[in-house]
Design a protein around this nucleic acid. Structure first.
Lengths: 334, 334
DNA sequence: GTGAAAGCGCTAACAC
DNA sequence: GTGTTAGCGCTTTCAC
């Protein structure tokens, strides 16, 4: 913080009105005579008065700040969600406090508590798991929370997602129609609700539904580019010829590893990835993707949060946005 | 904001001490008898008391919050800088308010003013330009500012950078030694100080220093992947055989465009890019890069900011970190 | 070692 | 339409 030069009191004195009137002018309250308003505005300009948002926050119990909880800033998936959030936040004049939680310095619930202590008006939660302690902390304070691109198992919290089951099934169908019969799924965190209750069940169902697919190949804990790169050996050993990957960087790792091994993508191995961030489209062959509307998901989540913060009615608290299966060069697309 | 359940006053009453004593306990002040401290701590735990950071901020004039000003969250260059900042901020228990400014909804100085009104204790500025109005706003409030990965022309503000001139010269030398004689530089914003006063002058100097290089090829306003992709036609027409590119996504665009045109990188065209984000390393051929220590730059900038916010002495306010020229497949490296 | 009290800068009744 | 006043929840002198 710094020297507070000009306060509302200075403006009031200079404009020969009370603090209340200055406050009204600052907050656009109509109960001010035009003439008075203009006089106050002139003084504000003259004195370079800027309201102290901390004092406003304490007095009004609104900070016009929302918290963002995100695993990793450098993951484009979250960055693109965040961009959608940020734009809508700006539109509604909210600031954003961002907290990344994949850092082991502080436990997640401590990070959340610190955010809550700052009296944020609401939170957007993007991590793929929502621990019980986190849920409790949110409930204890009545701070509205919206999940963006993730779900909690009991659907207690509002969320903005896509239909992961449908998307994965469609992707698996694409592989199947290309005559691939050793289909695998590669996920990062198999305890994330999106995976454990959506993607993986959809995969299992697909295997069960097809007589000529008899074995499940589920690879978990594959989290980044090099994990993906290293996984390829195993995929090859298992004879996998078609794979859906939940993270773009992992998919690119598998792709590069296959290429480096002299294999052909898509002939030897078809790959579908599930985020459609920039990295998936600039590699060659470009990756076929389940294109999630990440920017929109963030924007819609933030818009919903603004309503919740204003105690407005929200008709649908579990919004499912459309995805698109974009066929590129990592699948045959017969 | 939300219902404030438990205040410092509740704790004081329950523990039969004054608010002052509770405050001392909360803030780790030693002037409390051990017995009293333990009693207060027990009550705090029992009541789930959490201090209201807004009230603390108003009373203490410190918010333990820093502002981050960044052009675009989805640009990995800024994301990696931010990650370094975030980790150090967490270490020193600062929260981060992030403001992206490439959005046209609000003018940059309005965004900055809104950040300043929130009484942030300091700011890290990452945009490649620092407009005068922004500089004035910072100076008016005495809020410390550190520039990360960017510079202002008068070096009025502390900064953490690399030696861009040296790096570019080294990169140009690499191209030159591979017998390339039509060397170009591609930048995004030619009015950014890093470009206008470092990279471009270094390039011009290099051309001037070599008799067999007679013409300057400076391409400006090339900002993203598709700009890069489209630029290639022009590079080809101009007969360029070696290029340094300041943005990774642009470099990848040029690369893919060249490959799609059936050209060979590095034989027909050598490319050096200047950020070394993930995107530069996963494309094939992998790009030779001026590897900037982005994470470290962010971390060092944040560390410096903590000192400035504590009015500690900072011996060197213009830190230059080492870069590394990493030779990959987009150059011949003879 | 502990408490009383002022005040941080603002909002929001309420009164006029 | 405008002013008065009582807080918001905390920190911080200053006494004792």
């Amino acid at each position: 913080m710094h020297k507070q030069e000009v306060t509302i009191y200075d403006v009031a004195r200079e404009a020969k009105v009370s603090m209340a009137t200055v406050s009204r002018v600052v907050n656009g309250n109509n109960n001010v005579r035009k003439e008075t308003r203009e006089r106050v505005e002139a003084v504000i300009k003259k004195l370079h008065y800027q309201p102290n948002a901390v004092a406003q926050g304490l007095a009004s119990k609104k900070t016009t700040t929302v918290g963002l909880i995100v695993p990793d800033l450098t993951n484009l998936y979250f960055a693109e969600l965040s961009k959608g959030i940020d734009d809508i936040a700006l539109l509604y004049k909210y600031n954003i406090i961002i907290s990344s939680i994949e850092n082991r310095l502080m436990k997640e619930d401590q990070v959340i508590q610190s955010l809550l202590n700052k009296q944020v008006d609401g939170v957007i939660y993007m991590s793929n798991r929502l621990p019980d302690e986190a849920a409790e902390a949110f409930n204890r304070t009545n701070t509205p929370v919206v999940l963006a691109g993730t779900k909690d198992s009991r659907e207690n919290f509002p969320s903005v997602t896509i239909d992961y089951k449908k998307a994965d099934t469609e992707a698996l169908n694409l592989l199947y129609n290309d005559d691939k019969r050793k289909l695998a799924i590669v996920v990062g965190d198999d305890e994330a609700v999106v995976n454990s209750e959506n993607r993986i069940p959809a995969y299992k169902q697909f295997i069960a539904d097809h007589d000529d697919l008899d074995q499940e190949y589920i690879y978990t804990d594959v989290r980044d580019y090099s994990d993906g790169y290293n996984l390829y050996t195993k995929l090859q050993k298992d004879g996998i010829d078609g794979v859906i990957v939940t993270r773009d960087s992992v998919a690119v790792g598998i792709l590069n590893s296959a290429m480096d091994a002299g294999k052909s993508v898509p002939n030897d191995l078809e790959i579908v990835t599930a985020s459609a961030t920039q990295i998936a489209s600039v590699v060659r062959p470009a990756l076929t993707t389940i294109k999630q509307p990440l920017y929109d998901m963030g924007a819609v989540a933030m818009r919903m949060l603004t309503k919740l913060m204003n105690n407005e009615e929200v008709d649908d608290t579990h919004i499912v946005l459309p995805y698109e299966l974009v066929k590129k060069q990592s699948t045959l697309n017969q």
